[in-house]
Design a binder for these strands. Sequence first.
DNA 1: CGTTAGTTTGAGAGGACTCAAAGTCTGTGG
DNA 2: CCACAGACTTTGAGTCCTCTCAAACTAACG
Lengths: 189, 189
Amino acid sequence: MTEEIFKKIAAEYFEISPEAIFDWSEKIKIIEYKKKYLLAKEGSYIPKFYYVIKGAVKAYYLLDDKKVTDWFAFENDFIPSTTNLLVGQKSNHFIELIEDSILIELTNNDLEELCKKHHDFEHLYRLILSKTIYQLRERIASLQFRTVKQRYDSLIKLHPTIESRIPLGDIASFLGITQETLSRIRASK
Amino acid sequence: MTEEIFKKIAAEYFEISPEAIFDWSEKIKIIEYKKKYLLAKEGSYIPKFYYVIKGAVKAYYLLDDKKVTDWFAFENDFIPSTTNLLVGQKSNHFIELIEDSILIELTNNDLEELCKKHHDFEHLYRLILSKTIYQLRERIASLQFRTVKQRYDSLIKLHPTIESRIPLGDIASFLGITQETLSRIRASK
DNA sequence: CGTTAGTTTGAGAGGACTCAAAGTCTGTGG
DNA sequence: CCACAGACTTTGAGTCCTCTCAAACTAACG
C-alpha cells in the first residue's frame, strides 16, 4: 500500500532515492481512526505531519469560543504543521477527522532527521512547502477581495465533493462567513 | 557589506557552510533603484527572488483594473516568488519599490542550482519558506475573522513604521478594505 | 507655484451579521 | 425497524458595517 503512495508523491512532486524511501518507511506510522477523532489538540503538543490516504480532515482553532476552520485535507493532501517551528511555539490548532480516515503520520523530529540525512528528502519537503505557499496565497486572494459567492464557487471548483462531505458550518467558517450567510448563498443559486 | 547580510540571515535562520556562501555570493546581484521602479511586471517574467537590504517594496496584482496589494517587504525581508513554479505558471504580480531601495537579486534558476548543489543551502531555503507559511497563515487568520480595526492594529504592531512609509491606499488594499474605510478607522482612534 | 498623488469627509445603498425559531437529517438504542 | 435525540440546515427580521460615488482638502515634487 505504501508503495503506491510513494509513487503518487513522486509523480506529483519529485522522485526520491530508494535509500530515502527506505528510511522514510521506517519512520512513518499508518493510522486509522473514526470520524470525530482528534489527531491533535490545542496546547498539548508533539508536532506531527500528516498525509491523508483516505478520508477527510479539518484543522481549526478557537477564537472567542468559536471554531475557526483553517484547512481541509482530503485524499492525497498533506496537513502541514500548524506551528511556527522556527520560534518553537505551541500550536493553537485542533485537527479533527470529518470522516473515518487512514493517514500517514510522521513526527516533526523524524521529518527533520530525514531532511538532515537525505538531501533529496529535504528537496521533496521543500517542494511540498512551495505548494502549500501557493495554496495559502490563493486563499488570501480569495479572502481579500472576492465576494462571498466567488469564494464559495471557487472552493467548490477546487474540491467538488466538499458540499456533500463537509458540514456547511465548517465550510462557512473556512470562507470567513457565518453559516446562515452560506446557506442563503446556496439557496440563491 | 554582503558579509554582514549573510551573518544576519545565519542568525535568523541557519548558518550555511563557507562553500555555499561562496557560491551564493557569485550568483547574487546587488541592485539599487529609485522609488516607483518596477522590479517585476505582470506576464513578462524571469522569476527572481529578492532580499531587501534597505527600503520598502510592495507586490500587487490587478483585479478588475484595481491594484490589490499582496505583500510588503522592508529591511531584512524576503520577497518570495509569487508563482507556483511547480506548475510552471506565469506570475500575475507587479513588484514595485515604495522607497529608494537596495536589494539582493537571485534568479530562480540560480536558486534552484544552489539548492541542488548545497544541501545546507536548500535547508536554509526551506526554513525561509516555513517562515513565509507562518506569515501567510497569520494573514489568513486576520482576514478570515478579525474586525478591520483588529487587522489594522496588528499590522501596525508588526510593522510599526508602516504608517509613515506606505501610502494609505496600499495598506487598505493589503487589509482587504477600501482606503475610505481605513481613513475612517484611523480618524476614530 | 502649479500639478499630481494621496487623504479625508459625506450621504446613501447593499451585504453580512446577530439573534431567534423552525425544519431536516442521521445515527443509536429499544 | 422505528422513534427519539442531537447535529445540522434553513428562514426571518432588524442592525450595523463597509462599500460606492462624489467632492474637498493636503502634501509632495519638479
